[in-house]
Write a protein that binds this DNA or RNA. Structure first.
Lengths: 127, 127
DNA sequence: GATAGATATTCCTCCGGGCGCATATGGCTG
DNA sequence: CAGCCATATGCGCCCGGAGGAATATCTATC
C-alpha cells in the first residue's frame, strides 16, 4: 500500500519539517541544517530515508546536493502534502521554519540555486 | 507536535484500515475482526494504540466494546481523516473493507448498535 | 456463583528506525 | 595531487512497536 510508505515518512518530526520546507521549493542540505538547527548527519539521513522511500529526489549542484519533492508525485502524496501544508499553518515550529527560509533567501542570495557560503564566507551558518 | 502523533497512528496498515472504517461510523471489535480478517489480539491492540494516542474512544455496550472516532477531533485530525478517505477511494483494499462493512450492515441488522451473534448464532464469523 | 462470550493485557521475540561518532566519498580549488 | 568542503555511509546502541500465544478481565446468563 503506497499510502503506508507516505505516512511512515511523515511520522518523524524532522522529516515532517523537511517535507514542509520542500513544498516551498528545492533546497540543499546546508540550508536544511541552518533552518532546522539539526546536525548534518541527522539531516542527511532523513533526506536519504525520504529518497529511498520515493518522496524526494536529489541532484548534484557542484559541491552540494539539492533536494526536491519528486516530480511526478502520486495523487496520494500530493493530497497529503497539501494537508500537511494546511496543518502546518498553525504550528509555531513550521512557521518559524518558513520564516528562517524566507530570511535565508532574502538575506542570502538567489532564491533556489545560490547556495550557502556565498554571502558571508567568514561567519557562514550560525551554528 | 500533535501532527506527529496522528501520522504515527496512520503509518500502520491495520490501523489505517481501522480508522478508515471508523469514518463510516462506530464499530465494535468483532466487526473489525470480521471485516479485516485479522486475529482478535491484533485488532484489540491496534484499537488500544489508537485510543492511547487519542484518535479513538470506546464505550461498553453490554458484552462488547464499541469504538468511534473522538468526538472533538482536532482540525489536524479532521483534515487527515478527510485526506485518508479521499485516498482510500482508489485503494482496492479499502474498497473491499467498505464493501464488507456494507454487507455486515444489511445482512446483519441495525446499522450501528446491533452487534454480532444476533443474526447467525451457529455459523457466526466465518474464520 | 459457575460458565460462556467478548475483549484486554501480559510476556516474549524480532525488527526497523533514530541518534551520534567516526569515517568515507566525490567534487573543487590552489 | 593535496587539501578542503559538502554530504553520505557504516557501526553500535537503544527503544518502541508489531505479532502471537496464553491468560486475565468483565459482563451477561442460567
Amino acid at each position: 500500500m503506497e499510502l503506508i510508505r507516505i505516512y511512515q515518512c511523515l511520522c518523524d518530526a524532522t522529516r515532517l519539517r523537511i517535507l514542509h520546507l520542500l513544498t516551498q521549493g528545492p533546497l540543499c542540505v546546508c540550508h536544511f541544517q541552518a533552518i532546522l538547527g539539526e546536525p548534518q548527519v541527522k539531516v542527511s539521513k532523513h533526506l536519504g530515508y525520504l529518497k529511498r522511500h520515493g518522496l524526494v529526489e536529489a541532484r548534484r549542484e557542484g559541491n552540494w546536493r539539492v533536494y526536491r519533492l519528486v516530480r511526478r508525485a502520486t495523487r496520494e502524496l500530493q493530497a497529503n502534502l497539501a494537508c500537511l501544508q494546511d496543518c502546518a499553518r498553525e504550528e509555531p515550529r513550521f512557521r518559524r521554519d518558513l520564516e528562517r527560509l524566507r530570511r535565508l533567501r532574502t538575506n542570502g542570495d538567489d532564491p533556489s540555486l545560490a547556495c550557502c557560503a556565498k554571502p558571508t564566507p567568514a561567519k557562514a551558518v550560525a551554528r
